[in-house]
């Protein structure tokens, strides 16, 4: 089955405006980045420059165009690298930095397919573990920082409860699907990534995980066995009926004091 996918990136970073002084648009009203077609820059109040580049620190969220394949994504990443490195003159850490206020959100959709409708919760942790596994095996020096920063207040690890309420601040934000922006993977980050090679490797890993998500979300089986407690456990556990009956008994005593009730075996009769 052919699946048309769409991938978009929101990259939060601190730019060195001494090297790349770009115009930054308003929040959710990005302006096109000069010499980088399709990409736009916008303000994001949650970012903190931490004076990474002294007075030249510029907090910005860079939003990519939509990519439809790994090749398109990696071409976009290459263009990004060329633009901000001045065609290879500067290493990544000279032109931008990723501190702990910066995230890298990814929007992902498959044409004609709704993740929030058709994908059960159990699929998402599998993607997370695949990402962790790939990252640990990678050459990215700050991989442990990235892993530690994966679960944060505005990108909380998905639990069944969070998944059910479709929280916007979850690791996988499914409510963005209803705004036709695809499912958003919010926990990604590039904390302390310092080289362009690491930057490219990171996005390759992410795309591997997307392919994995694509594969396991279109066709799956989930098996679960529920064992009811054994008889001893059942006897120990209070039940709904027990509460109902004790309430009725209290009521009956009050109202009908002239009725005498006797029970053969009090132990068996839950008294």
């Amino acid at each position: 089955m052919t699946q048309q996918i769409h991938v978009g990136i929101e990259l939060e970073c601190v730019l060195n405006s001494a090297i790349n002084d770009i115009i930054v648009g308003e929040y959710h009203e990005g302006v096109t980045v000069e010499d980088l077609p399709g990409w736009s820059s916008e303000y994001d109040g949650s970012l903190n420059s931490k004076h990474e580049f002294g007075k030249h620190s510029l907090c910005v969220e860079l939003v990519s165009p939509l990519f439809k394949s790994r090749r398109a994504l990696m071409k976009g990443i290459e263009d990004f690298k060329n633009r901000f490195s001045g065609h290879g003159r500067h290493e990544l850490n000279e032109v931008m930095s990723f501190n702990d206020s910066c995230g890298a959100h990814l929007h992902f959709s498959i044409e004609g397919f709704s993740f929030s409708d058709k994908v059960i919760y159990e699929i998402y942790p599998k993607v997370r573990f695949r990402f962790f596994e790939k990252l640990r095996e990678s050459n990215i020096k700050s991989r442990h920082n990235i892993l530690e920063h994966y679960n944060r207040s505005y990108a909380q690890i998905l639990t069944k409860e969070i998944w059910r309420i479709k929280s916007r601040r979850a690791e996988f934000n499914l409510s963005s699907e209803s705004e036709r922006k695809g499912m958003e993977w919010r926990s990604l980050n590039l904390l302390n990534v310092r080289t362009w090679d690491e930057f490219s490797e990171f996005w390759n890993i992410v795309y591997d995980c997307l392919e994995y998500l694509c594969a396991i979300s279109q066709k799956y089986e989930n098996i679960e066995e529920v064992k009811i407690m054994d008889e001893d456990e059942i006897q120990k556990t209070p039940s709904v009926l027990c509460q109902v009956m004790s309430y009725k008994r209290r009521k009956r005593r009050k109202t009908y004091s002239n009725i005498k009730i006797s029970v053969k075996d009090t132990k068996e009769a839950f008294l």
């Binding site: 009811i228 407690m229 059942i234 039940s239 002239n258 005498k260 006797s262 075996d265 068996e268």
Partner: peptide, 27 residues
């Protein structure tokens, strides 16, 4: 479904073998 399954089994075990005799006398 799981919750109700548990409740059902639990209640069947707890109450199904109760042997109760009720004597009612009106004063």
């Amino acid at each position: 479904f799981k919750l109700e399954l548990k409740n059902l089994v639990q209640n069947v075990f707890k109450y199904s073998n109760i042997d109760v005799t009720v004597n009612i006398g009106v004063e």
